[in-house]
Amino acid sequence: MTDWTGRTLELEVGPVAHGGHCVSRVDGRVVFVRHALPGELVRAEVTEDKGGSFCRADAVEVLTPVPERVDPPCPLAVPGQCGGCDWQHAAPEFQRELKARVVAEQLRRLAGIEWPVEVEALPGDVLGWRSRVRLVAGRDGRAGLRAHRSHRVIPLEKCPIAVPGALDQALGRRWRPGTEIENTIDGDGRVHARELATVRGKRRARQLTGGEAVQHAAGRDWRLQAHGFWQVHPAAADTFAEVVREWARASPGALAWDLYAGVGLFASVLAAQVGPSGQVVAVESGRRAVTDGERNLADLPQVGWRAGRTEDVLRKLSGRPEVVVLDPPRSGAGREVVETLAAASPSRVVYVACDPAALARDVATFAEAGYRLERLRAFDAFPMTHHVECVALLTR
Rank of each mutant, 00 (worst) to 15 (best):
S345F: 08
H18T: 05
R330T: 03
V62Y: 05
P276T: 09
R306P: 09
E212L: 14
A307L: 14
C159S: 03
P38N: 13
A378M: 15
R335M: 04
Q95G: 03
W129Y: 15
G52R: 04
G332W: 02
G20K: 02
A91F: 07
L63D: 07
A250G: 05
I185T: 00
R372G: 06
E311V: 08
H35G: 15
G165F: 03
G334V: 15
G39A: 14
I185G: 02
P92T: 14
Q215C: 11
R142M: 08
E212Y: 12
R96T: 05
G275A: 02
E339P: 00
T184D: 00
L265G: 07
T291H: 09
H151W: 07
P356I: 05
E368P: 14
L41G: 10
L341F: 13
S53W: 12
A250C: 08
S285E: 08
Q169D: 14
R101I: 07
A91R: 13
H216R: 09
A162C: 03
R25C: 11
S347Y: 06
P79E: 02
R142L: 07
I154R: 11
H89I: 05
H387A: 06
G275K: 11
V136L: 13
P276N: 05
G308Y: 08
G14F: 03
L127S: 00
R25M: 07
G275I: 04
P301C: 14
R245W: 01
F54R: 10
P75A: 01
A213Y: 10
G138P: 01
G278S: 15
V388P: 09
R206D: 13
G262F: 15
D355K: 02
Q106E: 09
T64C: 02
V66A: 03
D292G: 07
L63E: 08
V324I: 12
E48D: 15
S131C: 04
D355F: 02
F366M: 03
V46Y: 00
S53D: 11
V103C: 12
P276M: 09
P72R: 00
E157S: 15
A17P: 03
V119G: 14
L11S: 01
A121R: 07
R223P: 05
G138R: 05
V244E: 01
F366I: 00
G6Q: 15
Q231M: 07
T179K: 09
A143V: 13
R335T: 06
A77H: 00
A237L: 09
Q169Y: 11
R306Y: 06
C85I: 02
L373Y: 11
A282R: 15
V363Y: 00
E389A: 14
P234I: 05
V263K: 11
R132M: 01
Y260K: 12
L156R: 11
W129C: 06
V263L: 10
D355I: 06
E311K: 10
R223L: 12
A256L: 09
E182I: 04
Q169W: 11
F54Y: 15
R287Q: 12
R306T: 08
S331A: 04
E93L: 09
V13I: 08
R34K: 10
R194Q: 14
V350D: 02
H386G: 15
K50S: 12
R101H: 09
